[in-house]
Design a protein around this nucleic acid. Structure first.
Length: 279
DNA sequence: CAATATACCTGGATGC
DNA sequence: TGCATCCAGGTATATT
């Protein structure tokens, strides 16, 4: 589900209600996620700790606690976080619960279990955060995300520009839905080799990326099947999608039917009239 | 090193 | 109704 906007919507929703809360218990379903969960370690590190703030790097949420420990949560494909009363019965696919001293519980629900939950203990958190940041690509809302920088990063890259945008080690936060939408808005053909785009195209991609991601955050994210923000509400950006999932429907700009292809194993939607390869 | 394939999971939609 | 098949917002790892 979650690309940068959905992760950001989750973060903002939790921040409102959660900061200042103190952890008093940890529950785990016993089912393994992408990473191993050590309940005893989580309890030892987090119980009595107060949540200071929540940050985001790429699609990771960083829950910062008072004694410097950081709980890192990645939502994978179907992960959702919610804050509910600890008396509420657990749902199917609930996998982790952090009970807070105010009677609320932060719950992680993840049907497909591609999500991950990692604890950075206080003594290595700084180092781990540095390593994560090194490993992840540039943030779309950062200064370094601009036309010339993107063109530079794409030098000698033969992979399709869509695959390039979705490569998290190069650019953070852009997944399949937003890659499709960004390339349509920039009028760039998804299969064009990244290294062959001209500066004007990269500038356009940088501009529309920020615009689309920002609008998606403002709309509460995109809910196709099951994304819910931390307050339990769906997003509404799917109402503003131009091409994703729109096979056969008219292009909003020229009415040519949208086509679906597969690129790098992922569904790819485009308007063959508005998006043409430029060499 | 870069590009591509595969694996990790569950469940909804589709077709027979 | 049942069953098989395909598909889904991500990413680490292996293979070419």
């Amino acid at each position: 589900m979650p690309e940068l906007p959905e992760v950001e919507v989750t973060r903002l929703g939790l921040l409102q209600q959660l900061t200042g809360g103190t952890v008093c218990d940890v529950w785990w379903s016993g089912k393994r996620l992408r990473t191993e969960i050590k309940t005893a370690v989580l309890k030892n590190s987090l119980c009595t700790q107060q949540l200071v703030t929540i940050d985001r790097r790429a699609k990771y949420l960083l829950f910062r606690f008072s004694q410097k420990a950081v709980l890192v949560i990645h939502l994978g494909m179907t992960g959702k976080l919610s804050l509910v009363s600890f008396t509420r019965p657990r749902d199917k696919h609930d996998h982790l619960g952090l009970t807070l001293s105010n009677g609320m519980e932060l719950r992680f629900n993840d049907c497909r279990r591609f999500g991950s939950i990692i604890l950075w203990p206080h003594d290595t958190a700084e180092k781990q955060e540095y390593l994560l940041s090194q490993h992840e690509g540039i943030e779309p809302f950062s200064r370094e995300f601009n036309g010339p920088a993107l063109q530079h990063l794409a030098r000698k890259r033969t992979a399709a520009v869509k695959t390039f945008l979705m490569n998290g080690r190069i650019i953070a936060g852009i997944g399949n839905i937003y890659a499709n939408e960004i390339l349509f808005a920039a009028r760039v053909h998804p299969a064009q080799p990244a290294g062959t785009l001209v500066l004007e195209q990269w500038q356009q991609i940088a501009d529309v990326s920020r615009n689309i991601l920002q609008k998606a955050i403002a709309a509460g994210g995109t809910t196709i099947a099951d994304f819910l923000g931390a307050n339990g509400n769906p997003g509404y950006f799917q109402l503003q999608l131009s091409v994703y999932g729109k096979k056969g429907q008219p292009c909003p700009l020229c009415s040519t039917p949208i086509t679906r292809t597969v690129l790098g194993g992922r569904a790819t939607f485009l308007c063959s009239s508005c998006q043409q390869q430029r060499h």
